[in-house]
Amino acid sequence: MSTRALRRALAALRAEGCCIILATHVMQEVTQLCDDVIVIAQGRTVAQGSPQELCRQTGIASLEDAFVHLVGTEEGIAA
């Protein structure tokens, strides 16, 4: 229930025009709450855009799968 309350609070702040910085690996949260996403791997920005743009950029429908593709491996460390 606390997760839902947090989502509602963040959505309300977003609707009021507040800038919220959210650091997470939970792509479901990113898809629901974020307008702009920055993907960082090995300390570098590897992609930036809306969740939809990142999916389009990679040609992958799932943001979670697009994220894995962008960082290079399942572990997030490019080989």
Rank of each mutant, 00 (worst) to 15 (best):
S2T: 11
T3L: 10
T3G: 12
R8Y: 14
R8S: 14
A9P: 01
L10C: 11
A11I: 13
A11G: 13
A12G: 03
A12W: 00
A15N: 13
E16P: 07
E16K: 15
G17I: 10
C19N: 09
C19K: 08
C19W: 07
I21V: 15
I21S: 10
L22I: 11
A23G: 04
H25N: 02
H25I: 02
V26S: 06
Q28N: 08
V30F: 04
T31R: 15
D35R: 08
D36S: 13
V39G: 09
V39C: 10
Q42R: 12
Q42S: 14
G43Y: 02
G43N: 00
G43F: 02
R44H: 12
T45Q: 14
V46E: 01
Q48K: 10
Q48P: 04
G49R: 12
P51K: 11
P51G: 13
P51D: 11
Q52M: 07
E53Q: 09
L54M: 07
L54A: 06
C55G: 10
C55K: 10
R56G: 13
Q57Y: 06
Q57L: 07
Q57A: 09
T58E: 02
G59A: 12
A61I: 03
A66S: 13
F67A: 00
F67Y: 02
V68P: 00
V71T: 15
G72I: 04
T73D: 09
G76M: 01
A78C: 05
A78G: 07
A79V: 05
